[in-house]
């Protein structure tokens, strides 16, 4: 009778340990998912912030000069291409063209 009770207690202990191990593995997995999600959200917030900064700079005309260049417009069928000299400005990694 006593032997039977001990066997039952042992089974409960094993079951509890297995349950804890499963819970631990799941918790580690969920923690990894949450950490990845937090990093993704942080990256998205950084992207949005740098976009807003670049847009504000462009709208306020506070562009960094990246040199000059020529924008060429060639109307199909016309032999003469129209070359328009432009200043190339940047705000972050946004590019903006302005007529010289």
């Amino acid at each position: 009778m006593r032997k039977r009770v001990n066997r039952k207690r042992g089974a409960i202990l094993v079951e509890t340990i297995v349950a804890f191990v499963i819970l631990l593995v799941v918790l580690i997995g969920v923690t990894a998912l949450i950490m990845t999600s937090i990093n993704m959200n942080r990256k998205a917030a950084d992207t949005s912030e740098s976009m807003e900064t670049a847009i504000t700079s462009i709208e306020n005309g506070q562009l960094e000069s990246a040199g000059t260049g020529t924008m060429t417009v060639r109307i199909n069928g016309s032999s003469a291409a129209v070359d328009i000299p432009v200043n190339v400005g940047t705000a972050g990694d946004f590019v903006y063209f302005k007529v010289q």
Binding site: A66, G67, T68, G69, T70, M71, T72, V73, R74, I75, N76, G77, V86, V88, T90, V95, F97
Partner: peptide, 15 residues
Amino acid sequence: TLSAAVTLPSNSAVG
């Protein structure tokens, strides 16, 4: 209607 080809400046900032 005229169609046109626009070539952007060859500048290192313009990828």
